[in-house]
Design a protein around this nucleic acid. Structure first.
Lengths: 142, 142
DNA sequence: CTTGACCTTGGAGTCACTCCAAGGTGCTTA
DNA sequence: TAAGCACCTTGGAGTGACTCCAAGGTCAAG
């Protein structure tokens, strides 16, 4: 299997596959006589796994941990659960942040015509926010 | 006011201020005799506005639009509302994506001990996801 | 005159890709 | 045999919004 076929099979681009190889999440491929990368079914399965993890918004670090666990002789739930739970935690944190953000934005929006001044109440509203020191990120999700 | 004092007053780092200047969201500062950047209250107000927009997860492009509108002689709600509404849209899209993600992750988590096989049901579960071609992003929020 | 806090610039690193240019490979058709 | 074409190779630059660092300059206090 050449890289283009693998890309089609895994629903990603050849660029992404080469990037995964360089990033060390996908093992290096064998090469053909003409220096083309050559893949087998195992590579496809691994790549599909990685793509699924990415679809679940995991980082490459999280994915590497999972793959390492998977490759260990005794791949038990005990090793996998903490990784998954940490990730679920990230998602929950981000959900709460975004929910708070949304209500703040809606509140701001409602100030639009609430002011009799010459300028838009929204701009005044944004200027009036009291910013706190930026909280350190609890999640890799933007 | 030197850059360090401005940074303290606006709750950000000097690096961030210099970056904003290079990125064109904050106007260039005057320089002292010793080539230090020198700021006045107007700069602080502007920087606070920018930091508040960032706290609302707006991009620099969105912020530049707002600032431009604000600097126009007739800064009305008519110009501001579309920008704000588009941003609220981004937040809502991302909220829905993350909610879907969370239920998928919880579903996955529940498969942990649901399998009698030797390996963890979670890993099997991730491998079994049928990935769709990656949807183009509707939002800049990660 | 030295110390130390602050400032300057430029460049590299982050994350997970994406896009591109210049050139090589290999199969089909004329 | 040659040309054409689809595919492959590498390396490097760009994305966004910073963050971190090194090497050196400025300035006030002791």
């Amino acid at each position: 299997m050449k890289i283009g076929e693998l890309a089609v099979a895994a629903n990603c681009t050849t660029d992404t596959i080469r990037f995964y190889e360089k990033a060390g999440v996908l093992p290096k491929a064998d090469r053909t006589h003409g220096n083309y990368r050559s893949y087998g079914p195992a590579h496809l399965e691994r790549l599909r796994f990685i793509r699924n993890c990415r679809a679940l918004d995991m980082t490459h670090d999280e994915i590497r941990s999972l793959l390492q666990t998977m490759d260990a002789p005794s791949a038990g739930c005990d090793d996998v659960l903490p990784i998954l739970d940490a990730h679920i935690g990230h998602v929950e944190v981000r959900l709460q942040e975004l929910a708070a953000l949304k209500s703040q934005l809606l509140e701001l929006r409602s100030q639009c015509h609430n002011e009799a001044s010459g300028t838009c109440g929204i701009l005044t509203g944004i200027g009036a926010i009291q910013s706190e020191p930026v909280v350190e990120r609890q999640t890799h999700l933007g």
